[in-house]
Design a protein around this nucleic acid. Structure first.
Length: 271
DNA sequence: ACGAAGCCCTGCAAGC
DNA sequence: TGCTTGCAGGGCTTCG
């Protein structure tokens, strides 16, 4: 599913179709997502104009005069722009018809995603309130990671995937960033030097911005708002390559589970 | 407070 | 060919 680069790619794909346009119709075929799609959602957004479309962590935030539509893609979700009237598939749960004759279609086989309505200050919302800094801004760097990590005993991989520490680093990019900075994924967060955190902070920024530039990573079914896949997959150094040779030293990459997530690393390059 | 584990759900691939 | 099992890009919630 979508990690930060995939959400960013989705945002770029749909933004030109929705910003400053009216939503003319809402169709909810299946409201049972992670949380139920509010039954009164249409009353808040139909006939209303989208003021802006932004991303915070992996949430897409649609700004209206009276509040925000908040969309999360979960593990298997996507938003695509299709012509109004396109026949829905099995997992096309929500359609947002736009005044330009197109619609934004929310598809999510596993239904781990969410479509919610939020009134009032976004920053105070329980889902957004505790989130850490955005990795691609100056609010985040290795120094911040170092400060947050003191006395933390969690494995470094779980640590950087913790949304309170930094948002948007999912399983793929956590594996990649640790490989790039030469850190073993099981190492205790609190036992890593500042120098190594500085490298890790840079690695996170680098891998995420590169992936954004490539349109995200398509593993099996991710597509951007324009329906195109991402091209970052060919750049992956470790994710999905357990048992294959390390591209740096040739040693066989190890695959373990850490926090119920596939974790791939090179035991020679990462210590 | 922290950390580990469970859970939400469907689809797909692998193994028997 | 079928069945069963395990795994998948997330993250909230519960439990110890």
């Amino acid at each position: 599913m979508p990690e930060l680069p995939e959400v960013e790619t989705t945002l770029k794909g749909i933004a030109p179709h929705v910003i400053n346009r009216q939503l003319t119709k809402l169709v909810v075929r299946n409201a049972s997502l992670r949380w139920p799609v509010p039954t009164d959602l249409a009353s808040h957004i139909v006939g209303k104009e989208v003021r802006s479309l932004k991303r915070r962590a992996k949430y897409l935030l649609w700004e209206f005069d009276s509040g925000h539509l908040l969309v999360h893609l979960g593990m298997s979700g996507s938003l695509r722009v299709v012509p109004a009237g396109t026949a829905p598939g099995k997992h096309d749960h929500v359609d947002l018809q736009v005044s330009d004759g197109q619609m934004v279609r929310y598809t999510d086989p596993r239904r781990f995603g969410a479509v919610l309505w939020v009134e009032g200050a976004l920053a105070e919302h329980s889902l957004l309130k505790e989130l850490g800094p955005e990795p691609l801004t100056d609010d985040f760097d290795g120094e911040w990671l170092y400060q947050c990590s003191r006395r933390r005993k969690v494995p470094i991989k779980s640590f950087i995937m913790d949304n309170k520490v930094v948002v948007g680093v999912g399983n793929i990019y956590a594996n990649e960033a640790l490989f790039m900075s030469g850190i073993h994924p099981k190492r205790e967060a609190g036992s890593i030097s500042k120098a190594r955190y500085l490298r890790l902070g840079e690695a996170i920024k680098q891998v995420l911005s590169k992936a954004v530039a490539e349109g995200g990573t398509t593993l099996r079914d991710f597509v951007g708002g324009d329906g195109k896949p991402g091209y970052f997959k060919q750049e992956l150094q470790v994710y999905g390559r357990g048992g294959e040779p390390c591209r740096t030293c040739g040693k066989t990459l190890k695959e373990i589970r850490l926090g119920q997530r596939a974790t791939v690393f090179c035991s020679a390059c990462q210590t």
